[in-house]
């Protein structure tokens, strides 16, 4: 059941022009960033020697997919549940032998499979350097893992935002707001030590940066998994809430 729903979500993303346009725009953006990174690497041999080609080009290219996904994920996740509510098609899922958890997982897997294409594009571009320089595949693996976890966390937040409203545009705006907030808390400084520490703890760069540098700390992996599970759980609660108070149609 989950697989059926995930496959349908994946298929429907490619039925809409939006799915293709977002993917094309993301690829264009990532391509430009990649070219820029290669040029910077060639122009600055000192930094290149210090950081290595893998970090200087591949890891930063993968990190750039996280910035581009900041706009892409809200756009593609906004219709996941809000459009079902707007088009009155949610009763089809609610009256089928599917639990709310299965509905959420099916939709999440569908959108995640699409979203992962973004860091995969960057990874393919990074792998194109194999012939011209020596790549650190360990660093490439941790950077890829970090980017994929980041984008999967984005998708979970997008799904939750989509479940809270009938309006896809409102879902997109609320998703974008949460994603930007979690980027900006890293520069938050109140002077109150505990609060600043908490803001650091919930910021994306705090947990992504070590992975981009090849450091695998389970606390960072746990953070991304925690965000994914938290927002998927909230989405399940939201669907259950729709069953309790109506409004799902």
């Amino acid at each position: 059941m989950i697989r059926t729903l995930a496959a349908m979500e994946w298929k429907r993303l490619f039925r809409s022009p939006l799915g293709w346009v977002v993917l094309a725009a993301a690829q264009l953006g990532q391509g430009l960033v990649f070219v820029q990174l290669v040029e910077t690497y060639q122009r600055n041999p000192a930094a290149a020697a210090h950081n290595g080609a893998t970090y200087q080009v591949a890891s930063l290219a993968l990190a750039s997919s996280g910035y581009i996904a900041l706009l892409a994920i809200p756009l593609i996740s906004m219709r996941l549940i809000s459009e079902e509510r707007r088009l009155h098609s949610l009763p089809l899922l609610q009256s089928s032998p599917l639990s709310s958890l299965q509905i959420v997982l099916g939709k999440y897997l569908g959108i995640s499979a699409y979203a992962i294409l973004l860091p995969l594009f960057s990874l393919v571009m990074a792998l194109s350097l194999i012939g011209s320089t020596q790549l650190d595949f360990g660093l490439l693996a941790t950077s890829s893992l970090g980017s994929i976890l980041l984008i999967c966390a984005y998708a979970a937040i997008g799904l939750f935002c989509s479940s809270t409203t009938r309006s896809p545009s409102l879902a997109a705006i609320s998703c974008l707001t949460i994603l930007i907030l979690l980027w900006s808390t890293t520069v938050f400084h109140s002077g109150i030590r505990q609060l600043d520490k908490l803001m650091q703890l919930i910021s994306w760069p705090e947990h992504l940066q070590p992975l981009l540098q090849g450091v695998v700390d389970t606390r960072n992996l746990f953070f991304f998994l925690f965000v994914i599970i938290l927002f998927l759980g909230l989405s399940v609660l939201q669907l259950e809430n729709l069953r309790n108070r109506g409004g799902g149609d």
């Binding site: 429907r12 039925r15 809409s16 088009l87 009155h88 098609s89 949610l90 009763p91 089809l92 009256s95 089928s96 032998p97 599917l98 639990s99 149609d249």
Partner: peptide, 22 residues
């Protein structure tokens, strides 16, 4: 036994639950 029960059910709401792009 919500899921098992709903497997025996067919429901056509007043507004057909359709996906326009399919």
């Amino acid at each position: 036994s919500a899921r098992q029960a709903r497997a025996h059910l067919g429901y056509a709401p007043e507004i057909p639950p359709l996906y326009p792009d399919l």
